[in-house]
């Protein structure tokens, strides 16, 4: 037993105190345990999920693959401020900024390239927290399958196609 043993273990009787006869026999305790075993044998209560046939619901705050959001006109919401790349502890966000097309009158800067190296990402959600425009989100997408490394290098198009965690009123 090391020092880090679970603290809810029953305390050993204080030194000098003698255990009673029933405790010394162990028999009543063994019978109690067997009773529990037989109870579950007769009326089984399932604690496991038959994965992958059955799936547990994914919580709302699950941090899965990233998505880039769109604004009401369907343009990328991101303004290429690099705050997500600055906050990112694994340095997996690579942005190239550029001036917006002239018809975007409300802003001047947008990401011409927005890439996330999902193999480096640790899914901490700092990018989501740092974003001043609510433009990046970690979705509840749980299944992340790819056959090559290149596929895990998400570009702007992939990120914009990701399913959203919830519906947003301003989504185009």
């Amino acid at each position: 037993m090391d020092a880090a043993a679970p603290h809810d273990e029953p305390e050993s009787p204080p030194a000098g105190e003698k255990p009673s006869l029933s405790e010394e026999l162990y028999l009543p305790e063994i019978l109690k345990g067997l009773a529990t075993t037989f109870k579950h044998l007769i009326r089984p209560e399932k604690f496991t999920v038959e994965y992958p046939e059955k799936k547990k619901p994914i919580p709302q705050n699950f941090r899965g693959e990233h998505a880039l959001k769109r604004d009401a006109q369907g343009r990328v919401k991101c303004v290429a401020c690099f705050l997500c790349a600055t906050a990112c502890p694994s340095e997996c966000i690579h942005i190239t900024a550029g001036p917006t097309p002239p018809e975007w009158t409300d802003r001047e800067k947008y990401p011409t390239k927005f890439e996330i190296d999902m193999l480096r990402c640790i899914y901490c959600g700092m990018c989501e927290e740092a974003c001043p425009c609510d433009a990046i989100e970690l979705t509840s997408k749980f299944y992340q399958v790819s056959e090559t490394r290149e596929e895990k290098y998400f570009g702007k198009d992939t990120l914009l196609r990701q399913p959203m965690k919830r519906e947003y009123p301003d989504q185009g």
Binding site: A80, F82, A85, T86, A97, G98, P99, K109
Partner: peptide, 9 residues
């Protein structure tokens, strides 16, 4: 230099 890089990088 506009939009080329954030200065802290």
């Amino acid at each position: 230099f506009l939009y080329q890089a954030r200065v802290w990088f």
